[in-house]
Amino acid sequence: MRANDKNSRTKQKSKFAKRLSDSKYLLLMIAPCVLYFIIFKYWPMFGLITSFQNYSVFKGITGSEWVGFKHYSTFFHDPYFFTVLKNTLLLGIFNTAWNFPMPIILALVINEIRSNKLKKFTQTVSYFPHFISVVILCGMVMSCLSPRGGIVNNIVVLFGGKPINFISDPKYFRTIYIASGIWQTTGWGTIIYLAALTGVNVELYDAAAVDGANRWQKLWNVTLPAIIPTIVVVLIMSVGRSVTIGFDKVFLLQNDANISTSEVISTYEYERGIIKGNYSYSAAIGLFMSVISSLLVIMTNTISRKLSDTALW
């Protein structure tokens, strides 16, 4: 202890050296992690400057020619620009709008189940779709929607309709994408709300009962307010992610017939970059997307801090 006091009186530099040597084993432990983030997360971010170059694999970042905002202006004048942007925004907005409320509703319902066995069973069963891979999910969707013997078309035929080739029809793409997403994520999404619901003060329900509240009123006035902070945090996260449409599922459900609604920014980025090898152009598309989604996160966060005092930062 006394040695510590002495050290603190000496120069800033030796204090720093002391802290450094105090945490040398901790630094050793965190080193692989830091290395990982530098190589696989920050290096690619630095690599985004290729979007201001005519990047050539042979010349590298240092040797490639600088072209400023050329790729961005090409992208904004690209004949596909509006279609791709529109598809991305619509898919993202509808997807979030549908997927966001579902877990809240289900969590409130699960919370009301009195039988513990039924509660457990409902939870176990509804979490399962989360563990199915995106490839299997898309395979299931396509098989079930298939015009030749898919279960959905069997039902359509049963009611006297003609089999519909859902997967090749652009107007069904968004519905398919969103519905399969609801199926996969709703159950899992309830966990975080159910965790918040365990913290509700039971006395509040008793107090509400004394005031003559029925179950709707209890739900609305006691249960729901308890999870508002959680709802806000999840909302900020999901709005921020809304436009960053995951590549996998769109790519797997995409085909030449439905491309007019299914081509989104990430698939376009893939096609121009990986397939056609136009790295700089593709990196520009990617950066454009990242900037939009960052702006969305900041925006939702600011709005929610003003309105409800709950925010991520």
Partner: peptide
């Protein structure tokens, strides 16, 4: 440094190039 990567990433192509 770690949490920032949850909100912003280099994207598909730069990551691909780094691995290459």
């Amino acid at each position: 440094m770690f949490v920032f990567t949850m909100f912003f990433s280099g994207g598909m192509i730069p990551t691909y190039l780094v691995i290459k």
